[in-house]
């Protein structure tokens, strides 16, 4: 069976933390632990008016890509609730095609083997 994953277009990840809390709700994850966690790169000045400041959500080994939920409702909880709608779920080969069409700030995760 084809592996599934998450595509995150972090050009539009605003750092809202919704993925973290939606995941905690779905999986009943206690404080201090995360199924997906925001990381922050920057902010730092590149040149003049150009800045680098990225939030990237990183799934952990507590992420099961919402297996039960996806069977029931179609999408992982983080994907549904993401305020920037910058996360997509699907088979890795399809996501890879989409990735090639996106801008430079894009990441793919395949957290479940």
């Amino acid at each position: 069976m084809a592996r599934n994953g998450l595509l995150i277009d972090y050009q539009y990840c605003t750092g809202c933390h919704s993925c973290e809390v939606a995941c905690k709700n779905e999986h009943k994850i206690p404080h201090g632990k995360w199924g997906i966690k925001l990381t922050e790169v920057g902010p730092f000045q590149v040149t003049g008016d150009k800045w680098e400041w990225n939030y990237i959500a990183v799934p952990t080994q507590l992420c099961d890509l919402c297996e039960d939920r996806v069977a029931r409702e179609g999408v992982p909880s983080c994907v549904l609730h993401c305020l920037g709608q910058c996360m997509e779920y699907g088979p890795l080969d399809e996501l890879a095609k989409k990735m090639a069409e996106k801008g430079p700030r894009v990441m793919m995760f395949a957290p479940v083997v």
Partner: peptide, 18 residues
């Protein structure tokens, strides 16, 4: 849960309501 049918928020929801 966010409601995907909502015309403005489309299922998106912030941490305060989550």
């Amino acid at each position: 849960e966010g409601d995907p049918e909502h015309p403005i928020t489309n299922g998106r929801l912030c941490v305060r309501c989550l």
